[in-house]
Design a protein around this nucleic acid. Sequence first.
DNA 1: CTGAAAGCGCTAACAA
DNA 2: TTGTTAGCGCTTTCAG
Lengths: 349, 349
Amino acid sequence: MSLNKPSRRQSGRKSVTIQDIAVRAGVSTATVSRALANPDFVSAKARARVLRAVSETGYTPNVAARHLRARRSMMILVVVPNLANPFFAEILRGIDDELAEAGYDMIIGNLDNRAEREARYVKLAMSGQVDGILNLTGRVPKGEGRTMAELGLPMAGVCARVPGQQSPHIVVSDRASSIQVAEHLVRLGHRRFGYCSGPKDNINEVERYAGFLEGLAAAGIGSDAVIRWPGEFHLVAGIRAAERFLAMSDRPTAVYAASDEMAIAFMKTVLTAGLKVPDDVSIVGFDGIDYAKFVEPTLTTVHQPRQELGRAGARALLEEIAGKGSGERIIELPGELVLGGSTGPPPSR
Amino acid sequence: MSLNKPSRRQSGRKSVTIQDIAVRAGVSTATVSRALANPDFVSAKARARVLRAVSETGYTPNVAARHLRARRSMMILVVVPNLANPFFAEILRGIDDELAEAGYDMIIGNLDNRAEREARYVKLAMSGQVDGILNLTGRVPKGEGRTMAELGLPMAGVCARVPGQQSPHIVVSDRASSIQVAEHLVRLGHRRFGYCSGPKDNINEVERYAGFLEGLAAAGIGSDAVIRWPGEFHLVAGIRAAERFLAMSDRPTAVYAASDEMAIAFMKTVLTAGLKVPDDVSIVGFDGIDYAKFVEPTLTTVHQPRQELGRAGARALLEEIAGKGSGERIIELPGELVLGGSTGPPPSR
DNA sequence: CTGAAAGCGCTAACAA
DNA sequence: TTGTTAGCGCTTTCAG
């Protein structure tokens, strides 16, 4: 059952080179290269012979050699804050679809919410392994003594505008959507609010919180009507916030969470404590992940066009790479407030 | 606002090569290479000068050149059925952690549940871009006229045993765990069952279904007590199954779904239809994803050690790459039945 | 311990 | 349209 295990890589079959094809097809390696990359610059006859040799041998160009010579890798680095959040998974799908159409593949740099992992991807980007960077983190990853922005690589931001970065950014209307959330809750009759925060240095968080306050202010409600709990967008933060909420004697009647994960965890925690949603407390999330539709009650949330965010980001980056990009610019896609069963009038006391 | 956009890549700063370091440090390129790769084979003095030159210039070796010469890429291809399923996201974390420790990075090949995307990754693997493959799909991806197994690359299977593949496989105890599920439900008093199936050609599905029947048989219950709905592990399949369940006049009292996503979607759909869980129907899932703990009621499910699955898979693959692998072997990790609020006694009629 | 030299496999001028 | 010729930047014998 045990075959010759060692050096399987070495001994392996794969060693058909462009030379072999050239010999087999009776042309030069240059012609082989052209026949594969620019078929139009080669005679039909030569092309046919090359293609036949290729299919007979199963030849695949060695990318390392190609990259070394052509100075591009057809590879994009996508830096993601946390792959476990399904929100990002769907953005990745949009990105991947768009990149694939252009012949690019991607390396996913998952920070797993740990900033210290940034250095690893700064290094990867520095090593010339990728032609561009898609940054979903809302920050400029740094490490190895530099920031990712200083590498001179084409870059584009998705989900979050990184202040001071002169590259394209595809974002969602955090502020306008949060104003809508405020309006919705005020219209239902709420006057005291809880707010589950994301990291305070995150631009999405900043915008969402500001928009929420702005919407309340428009209704004549001051920021002292809002209690803000710290968090980092993920499930655990929602539990923490709920614990603090439950410990209060005079609780707010509505809670806005800056992410669906926090909203879902918050809701579950208060339900487990015996409260009713929305009878005792209304809850609104942000993102519109699939699971928001499968919790009980269904979550009211701001739906982000995730796939389109990804596609637009990838398109913008490809333009930058092609040199056709216009550099700094912000494309804002609209979020949509989707009403679920988690919001209702405040309890009448 | 618009700087010199074109050919930013060309003009860019990055062009420090090993030559520059050699000159700067007053040694040969060979010594630079050694100082970086095998510090022990270089005098302390030379090493120090090289390192200083490196940090002064910010030199990073060009990987394409390194790969071309060293014939390895330090890159692993991880083929995933569907990145949007959080189950896989956490396995990826385990894989990534283990690979990172060994200096490897990974390319994620997301099939997005579409078999026609396999070819893209077969091609990628063929091109010499990766040193090994981790296959989470339970099948042998194929395309470009070959299967991924024929490439001669080191490979390991995670989550699912691929029949006939002589490579290491890290799997979970599908069958034993499903027997436990059956025992649990029978003990509660259930006698008629629904089963939300995965793809019938998927080995996990086969094992889970077989285990479930086996567990029931041990209690004297025949397979005619089980109605099996088709599915593909994801949320939508759970909705479909629930619709068929709801349309029945004489419904089973307990439902076992071969994945948490299906179980969650099933539960939400029957709740929306006005049923009570577990009073009207008990539901059990498989996987133990985070969201299983945040739906209402909490899902009873078989928890898979996801991170450890990933880590073990990565370790096995690294052994194969190092030539220390023992080839075919199956490592089975135990699943754990975690009781939630979604299972209870059948309704007394 | 160190340097010289030979390529890894491919593409891009430059000629023909 | 095609072939010849130089390397891309690095690692690795092989001598010294």
